[in-house]
Write a protein that binds this DNA or RNA. Structure first.
Length: 124
DNA sequence: GGGTTGACCTGTG
DNA sequence: ACACAGGCCAACC
């Protein structure tokens, strides 16, 4: 096993992560840990954050729909990144109360979404 | 090779 | 609800 195979694996992992993030429906959010699970990376929440940090500008995936398990944006409050993510969330109808999103209300629960409410999303 | 870092998570008080 | 500690893990230096 040379460093080359490890490198290919790392790139493949990034792609898996991006693929999962791309599936988060508009108007919903998912946590880093949840994305990690779906990308077959148990306990890989930090890895997800790293992949998003390295996200090429050409990849147009809804990175803003990924928040931490506390329902909070994982950028320093008030920073440019924080502001942009917050704005994008508000734009699609996701509500922040005291800087937090209710996962109960806006969390992405794939099975339910696909079986019951495929094209709808919380309106308030 | 080993210490540091960070777009994280969970339990505990 | 909030802060803190400990755990986690890959990338980086």
């Amino acid at each position: 096993m040379s460093s080359k195979s490890r490198s290919r694996t790392a790139a493949a992992i990034d792609q898996r992560i991006y693929a999962v993030v791309a599936k988060i429906p508009r108007g919903r959010v998912a946590t880093y840990g949840w994305i990690a699970e779906r990308a077959k990376l148990p306990r890989g929440a930090r890895r997800v954050g790293r992949a998003l940090g390295a996200l090429p500008a050409s990849k147009r995936i809804p990175w803003h729909r990924v928040i931490n398990a506390q329902g909070r944006i994982s950028f320093p409050e008030g920073s440019a990144h924080w502001s942009e993510q917050r704005q994008r969330l508000l734009t699609e109808g996701i509500v922040l109360k005291n800087g937090r999103v209710s996962l109960k209300q806006f969390g992405w629960h794939e099975s339910l979404d696909e079986l019951l409410w495929r094209d709808s999303f919380p309106t308030s």
